[in-house]
Design a protein around this nucleic acid. Structure first.
Lengths: 212, 212
DNA sequence: TGTACATCAGTGAACGCGCGTTCACTGATGTAC
DNA sequence: TGTACATCAGTGAACGCGCGTTCACTGATGTAC
C-alpha cells in the first residue's frame, strides 16, 4: 500500500482501509453529534470520502449500523474483561461486571444507543453475546455460577438470574445520566457512591449493600 | 359546536378539538408504524388536516412530542393505580406496580419509547412524576415506605431504593420483548411466569421469589 | 334581532434541507503472458 | 521486465423522498352595538 506524504502529499485515490476508517469516523460522529446525526452521508463526510464510497464496503445503511454495533459489543466485552479480576471472589466479580457495563454505557452513550437499537431491531443482542464462547453474556453467566446462588444445573433459574442482571444493568445504564439525580449524587459524594447505592438495592449485586 | 352529518356531511372548516384529535392521531400512528414514523406531517395526515394546522396548537414538533409523552405518563399512572390494590400487603403492591409498569411498556412500546426519549432529552422524567403529588414515582415511594425495608426518615436510602426499582423496571420493560427470550418463556409456560421469574431476582421485587 | 368586524383556526403551496441510493465514470492496482 | 487488460475502489452529479416550518390566504365564529 502506497502512503502519501503525511504532511504535504495529496490523498491517494485508493484509501487503503476505508472500512476501518468509516467505522472510526462513525464513532467520532456519534461522540460529537449523537445518534440522531448518524447518517451514511455524515460518516462518509467525516471520513473525507464521497457519499457513494461506503457502498463498496456496506450493502446499505443498516449494514453499517450493524457493524458499528458489533464493534461496540467487542469493546464492551473487552472492557468488562479487563474490569473483572478472574481471581477475585465471585461476588466482587459480578459487581465489577455490572459496574463496567454501566460505566461503558455512561462513557459512550451514543454508541450504546446504537448497540441497543440494532439489538432491538434484529432481536439478537443476547443471542450474539451468547453465541460467542467468551462473549459478555457468558462472562456474566460464569460469574453467576461461581457465585453459587443459582447452580448451573438449575438452568432456567440461572438464565433468569443473568437476564435479571442484564435488565437491571441496562435500565441503570440508560438512566444513570439523568440530570434529576444530580443533587442526590452530590449529597452522596459522587456518582460512584450513587451507583453503588442503587446497585445495592438490586438483588444480584447485593454484596455492595453489605459493604456500606 | 356544529357537527356535520356523521355519514354524508362535509367536514366542518373548524374542527372542534383539533388538539385532542392530533394527540389521538399521534397515538394511532405510533401503534401502527412505530416511533420512527412519528412526524408532525404524519400526525396531521392521520388527523385529516393540513400540515400547517398543528402549529395552531403546538409551538413546534418537540412540543407535540412532549404532549404525547405527558399523555403517556398520565395513562401509565392510571394503569399503575388500578393495578395495585391500596389495601393489599405492601410487598404485593410493590410487585403489582412493577408488573404494571412493564406491562404498560410491553403493550405500548412505541408510546413508551417516546416517553423515554422525551424524558432523556428534557431530563425531566422522574422530576415530572415526582412533582405531581399523585404521580407514578410517588405511588412507588409510598409502597416502598409501607414495605418497611427502608424507612421514610432514611431519605437517601429510600430514594435509592425507588430509583433502583425504576431502573430495573425500565430495563425489563425494554428487553422483555426480545425474541431471544421466547424459548425460555415457552419453557416456563408463558410470559407471566417468565416476568415473575426475572423479577424474583431483582431485590425489591423479592417476594415473588418466596412464592414460587 | 341584525349587522360590521375582529379574531380564530383552518388551507395549500412553497421553502430549503439532509437523507439513502443509483449511475456512469475514472484512476489505481495487480495479474497473465 | 514490459505491456494489455480485468478488476477494484473511488468520484460527483443526480434521483426522489419526507421532513419541519413559513406564508399569504380564507372560511367560520363570536362579540359590540
Amino acid at each position: 500500500m502506497k502512503l502519501p506524504c503525511p504532511i504535504t502529499g495529496p490523498k491517494p485515490y485508493h484509501h487503503g482501509d476505508l472500512r476501518r476508517a468509516l467505522l472510526e469516523a462513525a464513532s467520532r460522529v456519534l461522540e460529537r453529534e449523537g445518534p440522531n446525526a448518524l447518517s451514511l452521508r455524515a460518516v462518509a463526510r467525516e471520513a473525507g470520502v464521497s457519499p457513494a464510497a461506503p457502498y463498496h464496503h456496506f450493502k446499505d445503511k443498516s449494514e453499517l449500523m450493524l457493524a458499528i454495533s458489533e464493534e461496540g459489543f467487542d469493546q464492551l466485552y473487552k472492557f468488562m474483561l479487563q474490569s473483572s479480576d478472574p481471581d477475585a471472589p465471585p461476588m466482587e466479580r459480578v459487581a465489577a461486571i455490572g459496574v463496567a457495563y454501566v460505566e461503558f454505557a455512561k462513557a459512550h452513550p451514543s454508541i450504546y444507543r446504537v448497540m441497543y437499537d440494532c439489538s432491538r431491531d434484529l432481536e439478537s443482542l443476547p443471542d450474539k453475546a451468547h453465541k460467542a464462547e467468551d462473549g459478555a453474556f457468558s462472562l456474566l453467566k460464569k460469574a453467576m455460577i461461581d457465585l453459587g446462588v443459582v447452580s448451573s444445573d438449575q438452568e432456567v433459574d440461572l438464565e433468569l438470574a443473568c437476564i435479571a442482571a442484564w435488565c437491571a444493568a441496562h435500565g441503570l445504564a440508560e438512566m444513570v445520566g439523568f440530570r434529576q439525580f444530580d443533587s442526590l449524587k452530590a449529597k452522596m459524594g459522587g456518582e460512584k457512591a450513587f451507583l453503588a447505592g442503587v446497585l445495592s438495592h438490586l438483588g444480584m449485586f447485593g454484596q455492595a449493600r453489605n459493604r456500606g
